[in-house]
Amino acid sequence: MKAIVPIKRVVDPYAKVKPTADGAGLDSGGAKFEINPFDEIAVEEAVRQKEAGRFTEVVVVSVGKGECEEQLRKALAIGADRAVLLETQEPLDSPAVAKVLSEFVAAEAPHVVLMGKQATDDDNNQAGQMLAAILDWPQATFAAKTDFAADKATVVRETDSGEETLELPYPCLVTTDLRLNEPRYIALPGIIKARSKPLEKRPLASVPAPKSSVVSFAPAPARPPGRKVGSVAELAQAIKDRGVF
């Protein structure tokens, strides 16, 4: 079975990000870029399936600028077999990413697409479901556990009130949640080996126009400064004084 894992290059999730003075963009103060954490979990899961003999090939793909190569290399170092960068300078929203990926996936014809539930920069939580919709594939979002058997995929997924188990026919699309696995530490040999794995750059002639765009960014309103109290009695009184109790 072949698996495709789409990955997004995002600013380090621990970086402090704020709007630029004119509100037109974001300033992350020169922070590093990473694989979107949920996508790293997806790569890890696919590689584990390969190591367990379930998947035969793991292909990672990213849509975006040339810099995404860095994250694709990291995915190769985790253990993916080959990488493709669908290269464009154009801005993309989740529907556009889904559309571009749908053509790539249709051509590659994998059994499974494994991807992140949400990008930690835009926090959209859209592209996976949209890709599944365009392909008309079954989906299981927010996976906490997977079992890719020969005839069907079984996915335990997180729900608002607990979890549920779904069975999906192939081909299918699965998005990852945090409990699925803990991505491995990448040791030096993996990084060296990744240098010789195939990474193909394909310029995109055009990408679909975004269906939405950001007009401006504002800082999230700061809470007025709070205060520390000296004792539990004082705390209880202060809570009561605020009339919320």
Partner: peptide
Amino acid sequence: PMVAGSVLARVKAE
């Protein structure tokens, strides 16, 4: 909100 709630974006649907 975006980026873990650190910014509020005004978004326009096209």
